[in-house]
Design a protein around this nucleic acid. Sequence first.
DNA 1: ACTGCTATCTTGTCAATGGCAAGATCGGTC
DNA 2: GACCGATCTTGCCATTGACAAGATAGCAGT
Lengths: 171, 171
Amino acid sequence: MSYHHGDLRRAMTAAAATAVAERGPAGLSLRELARLAGVSHAAPAHHFGDKAGVLTAVATEGFTLLAEALGQAGDDLLAAGVAYVRFAVGHPGHFAVMFDRSLLHADDADLRAAEQAASAALADLAPDADGARAAWSVAHGFASLWLSGAIEGPDVVAAAEPVLRRLVPDA
Amino acid sequence: MSYHHGDLRRAMTAAAATAVAERGPAGLSLRELARLAGVSHAAPAHHFGDKAGVLTAVATEGFTLLAEALGQAGDDLLAAGVAYVRFAVGHPGHFAVMFDRSLLHADDADLRAAEQAASAALADLAPDADGARAAWSVAHGFASLWLSGAIEGPDVVAAAEPVLRRLVPDA
DNA sequence: ACTGCTATCTTGTCAATGGCAAGATCGGTC
DNA sequence: GACCGATCTTGCCATTGACAAGATAGCAGT
């Protein structure tokens, strides 16, 4: 291993997402990330500025992944809802950070761009604003409640579909 | 002011809820709470054990308040949804903590009791499980998105009603 | 090859925090 | 009036986030 890690930024965001998924945003320690990556305790600050910077990078990655997942679902509202829930459950570390402004640099340019990409993917799904908001709300709410343990079951998708269908009865 | 504060526990939970509402759970400092209450830095630990204990108390209070709000809404599903959103926006500090297991002592007896009271109030609203889950998901999702700034508008209730109505078309 | 130049990473340091242990003080009870 | 448990304090420690200053590496231009 050379003096330069070479891919520290990527390694850090990945490790941060894992740590957040396991112990929550409050359980994330920059120094622990550094230890895991085998670098000094101040290395993260260089790439991300501060702790919020790390989480901002994770959130940005999350919105990008979400936009991709929604895009692949096409214009089927139910499929998009399932994709949304799948994303949240599949990337709990990202999801836990994305909608918590108190943890992020909300005015970060990359973050805003990624947010808008995801937002646009959502808006394309429904012809009217309230329909899009409603679809977003059900999917987001179900995913949040599932991740918090408030809704349980053997399979996420199996539990989500009948709920999402309430909102999209014609799908 | 005597040696004994007299109502420290209540003062702490209230101050904690305010602090969480303003700066998020990560921005809460036990020592700052102590300073605000005019007590020593170790006083909070006596009543709550640790930081998670403080937030558990806040979450417990939140679930109790939520159960009351839902109870007052009667058996009207739309009214209950509005009450849910109103609660979340009116008590952002409580709401931010209630569904984040990484911050709480999830096995706390009082917390579990309050959770179940709220859960029961929710289950009473719809005859079928999926209907209750769907109503919960929309209300929870909309409230979360509103609080995160993802959904904006001049009035919360005015923005929430058309969304909630998608799920409760017959109300 | 040599010289800068810049991004990357390190070492050193500081204040603040959470948590623990041991002691002081108060309020009520027998 | 003496005890006793609950409440609160003081003192302490390891960890953390953030900052400053220095070291190292790769790279471009000559």
